[in-house]
Design a protein around this nucleic acid. Structure first.
Lengths: 332, 332
DNA sequence: CTGAAAGCGCTTACAG
DNA sequence: CTGAAAGCGCTTACAG
């Protein structure tokens, strides 16, 4: 409740001086005595800066929002961490939200669309977001960085190398000796790219890739994926699943159906998370560089805010990485 | 970038009128023609309100922050949802963050501690937060609601009935016929209350409760819990684990050790999450009313902000609920 | 029915 | 070395 004005009165100085000790950008050669008086007053009064006033005056809030689809997806843990670290380094606070909160009319959305409280948005969405909301977003001055492949040239996006991830997952299985390998994924972009990678690997090995099973992203999608695979006839000897949680769900469904993993059936999940280590059999995964993605996202935000051009698109530098656990083995 | 001033110029009216159509709180009997002209100008210019200016003027931001320990814990999914719904209903936007971001000196912390951009904080922490930060928090005017049992009478807190949850978990096992039941938990409050509940149930049944194994909250803690249990001598026939993810980890460790669950050993986890359904054997849990907790937290925030007294403490109304899955069975 | 003006709490040239 | 003043973009009594 104490304002700079009161601190000024308390210390017998002007607000300019108070602001100066708070920010250190002006009045740099202030007398030691004055500074001490001011600092004492600040401490005594328990002065807390008003971020709204500061944001209004500075024309920037110092906060970026990160909005993702399915906040509870454990694969985001590293992404958030990367974003947080990079943002702090550059002087921003990060706040999080879920895509489902971006309903038209919601206060959450209003805060994102409004100016003054959020400087930029990092958004990860698959297809859940409605087009109306996306259009709103595009129309606003607030920069938006999508961490996901996008077709629209107006969008600023970056993504991990999903194609390589799909390829590496399939290659791992091919190296083990599998020839009949399926792909289970969801709708939308990341899954499509991963599937393309899978198809590439199959082609290179002279194998035929079967048409992808499209389900979704949660555990239940994995179970449905297995159902569909079995409905198609003889179960392949291995599968690439576009998502960890789906892969875990598929593993459970296989156990329920009495299918021996990895003896009869090998499973690779794309994305990594603690859970992969905790299910039994533990899940072989292709780990995506999510932390690096977070860092790049923040760099992108920086660039957008500064008007500096930067490299958009897929980054391949920290490449995906196969983490072999117990859900894959040579075919019987 | 368009401001009300420009809209006013465009529509040939004063900013008061522009503000009036935006908020509807004043100039209620505006002529239809004027209103239409203003609305047209707003649409044409793509006017977006400046939340910082609004917050400064209104002396409230319309945003509450929710900060939890281990954002990736799937048990929070429902809590977040409850908070979001209740907050939206009351006109607030919600933003999320992780307790580890509350380091002294971080911009994230600055935003929480500062005034003007966050009206209140809902905080769930176990013991990760450092006391210095908590002291800061207590010293600020921003209301903080802790969703966790607290001893300090200065704190405003609410919590689910952890004691009942611990009791119900143990009772479920006792009903199945178990007599030798252990407890694995973490440090800190919620685990302690759950353990107390466990002990109560044991006592009521005339059984002796063994001293709790204290590990932590992640999957690895569950594994360590099992190790310690085995190190103590003959493995009990059942265990109550204070947290889902630990329980899942314990399940994995049991599988690795060749211990048959639930045949030789039954496991109940406290808290529920999708994952409980997806591991094999699926995990019997005591589901806590996390959504309701979220709603209460927001009510609490409301009350604090309004200065209205409300009921603090443990709420028992939607009680915890045992969800029987496949990790529990009668002892051999 | 509508507008002029004050003021929310800051930061930042500018003057002295 | 320090202060007076303008202004960021709103909202809200108040006057007419």
């Amino acid at each position: 409740m104490a304002t700079q004005k009161e601190i000024a009165r308390l210390a017998g100085v002007s607000v300019s001086s108070v602001s100066a000790v708070l920010n250190g950008t002006t009045h740099t050669r202030m007398s030691h005595a004055t500074r001490e008086r001011i600092e004492a007053a600040i401490a005594e009064a328990g002065y807390v800066p008003n971020d709204a006033a500061r944001a209004l005056r500075r024309q920037q809030a110092g906060t970026i929002a990160v909005v993702v689809e399915k906040l509870e997806n454990p694969a985001y843990k590293e992404l958030f961490h990367g974003i947080y670290e990079a943002a702090e380094e550059r002087g921003w606070a990060v706040v999080l939200g879920d895509v489902v909160w971006m309903r038209s009319g919601s206060h959450f959305l209003a805060r994102l669309l409004g100016r003054g409280s959020i400087d930029a948005i990092v958004l990860r969405q698959d297809r859940l977001i409605d087009e109306e909301v996306l259009a709103h977003l595009r129309a606003r001055p607030t920069p938006v960085v999508l961490v996901e492949r996008q077709a629209d040239p107006h969008d600023s996006w970056i993504a991990v190398d999903d194609l390589a991830a799909g390829r590496m997952a399939a290659e791992h299985l091919i190296e083990l000796g599998h020839r009949d390998i399926a792909f289970v994924g969801g709708e939308g972009q990341p899954s499509a790219a991963r599937c393309e990678g899978y198809a590439t690997a199959m082609r290179s090995a002279g194998l035929v890739s079967s048409s992808p099973v499209v389900t979704g992203f949660g555990p239940e999608s994995g179970a449905r994926g297995l159902d569909e695979l079995r409905a198609r006839g003889v179960l392949p000897t291995a599968v690439v699943v576009a998502n960890v949680m789906s892969a875990v769900g598929l593993l459970a469904a296989a156990a329920d159906a009495g299918i021996d993993v990895p003896g009869r059936f090998s499973v690779v999940g794309i994305h990594d998370a603690d859970i992969a280590d905790v299910v039994r059999p533990s899940l072989t995964t292709v780990k995506l560089p999510m932390r690096a993605l977070g860092v790049r996202a923040v760099e992108q935000v920086s660039a957008l805010l500064a008007g500096t051009p930067t490299e958009l698109g897929v980054f391949t530098d920290p490449p995906p990485e196969v983490i072999v656990r117990s859900s894959t083995a040579p075919p019987e």
